[in-house]
Amino acid sequence: MEPGKPNLVVFAETLQALAQSDKEILVVTSDSRGSGKLEPFAKALPEQLVEVGIAEQNLVGISAGLAASGKKVFGVSPACFLTARGLEQIKNDVAYSDNLVKLVGISAGVSYGALGTTHHSLHDFAALQAINNIDIVVPADNFETQKVIETAVSHPKPLYIRFGKKAMPHLHQPDTPFEIGKAITLSEGADVTFIAIGETVAEAVEASQLLAQQRIAAGVISMHTLKPLDKEAVLKAALFTKALITVEEHSVYGGLGSTVASLLMDAQVYLPFKAVGFPDEYTVTGSQTEIFSHYGISPDGLAETAQQLLTGVLTA
């Protein structure tokens, strides 16, 4: 995999390019222009940046008012604060009131690593999935980030976009079709399929390469849209492959894993299944990579999970 930039940087560059030619685009920040890599945006387009101070409820409410008045609003704040401090505003002022704000949760998941639980967002999928009328997109690489930001401008529903800040490898060709709600199949594997989201997709791709060395055919789906979930892609994978593994930078409660599991059960599709994510415990201390590895979200960890899941399945 070719090394790329942090999705955060691609987000800021893409948005600035769009905003240069579309004056209706506004960015609203809560003292987060630095952490959002938006200093160049602020310098180039000062009239299109609204600063509300360290006040995430205010950020979401003001964004809703701007959107209701015809502005194309990107509300940008660390995911941990945006989706917890501002949750009631997201629920009422954005989703329920159908104000088409694009909420951007930066430095998401455990991107802040050793800064600890106050700065982690491992709850946001669960919290937002249960709210009617807001879509959730989590880009895996620079390509998906650029595409989702471009698509977001005219997306007909409130939207939550979430990504981290470390450099991500390129996963897609530039001509890959991208559509919110349509998963991208990176590879097909007859034995096991990883359905991964966000920054865990790259880990799953590497795991599939390790598994190939052991003659285990593993496929990878980038499920960049959590809601609306691409049910067809899940069910197709479940028919094509012998086992499914979901991978996410989120609690195992209420995220991709439980949503996929519930879809499979509802469709009466039964196969070996494992949801890899964060267990319900005090999160271990360390860098994002160390924390990932601790919870098995690593090439080795995911390959091992696949092997365990397939024990007795491949020989049967």
């Binding site: 609204v50 409820q57 205010n58 979401v60 409410g61 003001i62 964004s63 809703a64 008012g65 701007l66 959107a67 209701a68 008045s69 015809g70 502005k71 009631e88 505003q89 009422n92 002022d93």
Partner: peptide, 12 residues
């Protein structure tokens, strides 16, 4: 909730 939304609306 009304005042933050009103601020955004007035700012627009």
């Amino acid at each position: 909730h009304g005042l933050p939304i009103a601020v955004g609306t007035a700012l627009a």
